[in-house]
Amino acid sequence: MAAEGTSFKREMLATLPSLRAFAVSLTGKHDKADDLVQDTVMKAWAKQSSFEMGTNIKAWLFTILRNEFYSQMRKRGREVQDTDGVFTERLAVHPSQYGSMDLEDFKAALSKLPDDQREAIILIGASGFSYEEAASICECAVGTMKSRVSRARTRLTELLKISGESDYGPDAVSAQVTSGNSF
């Protein structure tokens, strides 16, 4: 019994950094993300008997966290969602391979995506889940997950093109914005 508890804890610990990054992408704020992860850890601990050791604990924890986030959002109305976007806070360590303006543009584009597309592209592109796992986390069909990711990618490409071309004058921008709106 004790050994099982310990290994459950160890597996949870290993998942926390990624779980926390996903939480930041949902809430947009580090303090809210940490509260969300804390609630998730307590929920997960309480229902650990329903978890089968050796199966995918990462997907299980992400599912609990995501459900917790949306259920809190429903309870509190729109207050939880009242963020300026995603990854809005200054990062403690800035990824060195990108200029800061480059990533600022990217964050702005990411925050313009619909919630379901943003979480899809993050789960697949950054958290490292398969389409099957991501679909199970978001309780949707695998095909739906694939189409959300593909639409997110298309939209991001469009948005980044817009911000890239803004240097060339307002005409190019408005032309791009118009075509972007049809999406």
């Binding site: 950094p17 990062l91 480059d102 990533l103 950054a126």
Partner: peptide, 21 residues
């Protein structure tokens, strides 16, 4: 897009887990 996503995500991951957690 993929590498910028992972750069953002990875930067949060690398912050480490807060002590309270």
């Amino acid at each position: 897009i993929g590498s910028r996503l992972r750069a953002l995500y990875g930067a949060v991951q690398d912050e480490g887990v807060p002590n309270q957690l």
